Amino acid sequence: MKNFSRLLIIFVLTLSLNPVFSQNFLENELSPNKSYVLLAHPTVANIETINFLLTNRILQLPEVEFIGIYSVAENYDYNQSVALLKKPEMSKFHLQKVDGVMSLTQIFEQNEWTTTFKKLFDHSVGVFFFGGPDIQPEIYKQKNLYSVVTDPNRHLFELSFLFHLLGGYQNEQFTPFLNEKPSYFVTGFCLGLQSMNVATGGSLIQDIPAQTYHKMNAEETLKLNKDQLHRNYWQEITKETLLMDNSFHQIVYTANPFFPERVKADKNLKPLVLSAHHQSIDDLGKNLIVTATSMDGQVIEGIRHRLYENVFAVQFHPEVSALYTEDKKLKFAPTDSPRSFFEILSPEDREFHVKYWETISKAIKASIKAQKIK
Rank of each mutant, 00 (worst) to 15 (best):
F4S: 11
F11L: 14
S16Q: 08
N18R: 13
N18H: 15
Q23W: 06
F25A: 11
S35T: 12
V37H: 03
P42Q: 06
I47C: 08
R57A: 15
I58M: 04
V64C: 04
I67L: 10
A73Q: 09
N75M: 11
D77T: 08
V82Y: 13
V82I: 15
K86Q: 15
K86W: 13
K97D: 02
Q106S: 15
F108L: 08
T115E: 15
F121H: 06
H123T: 12
F129L: 15
G131Q: 10
I135C: 06
K143L: 12
S147W: 01
V148L: 12
T150D: 02
N153K: 08
L159R: 00
Q170T: 07
V186P: 02
G188P: 00
L193I: 01
K215H: 08
T221L: 09
N225E: 11
M244W: 04
S247V: 05
A255H: 11
P257L: 10
A265T: 06
V273Q: 03
D283Q: 15
D283N: 11
T293C: 01
M295P: 00
I303W: 03
I303K: 05
Y308S: 03
E309K: 15
V311E: 01
F312C: 09
D327K: 13
A333C: 06
E343A: 10
E343N: 11
S346K: 12
S346G: 08
E348Y: 07
R350V: 07
R350E: 11
F352M: 05
H353P: 00
V354G: 01
V354I: 15
V354W: 06
W357D: 01
T359Q: 06
I360F: 03
Q371H: 10
K372S: 12
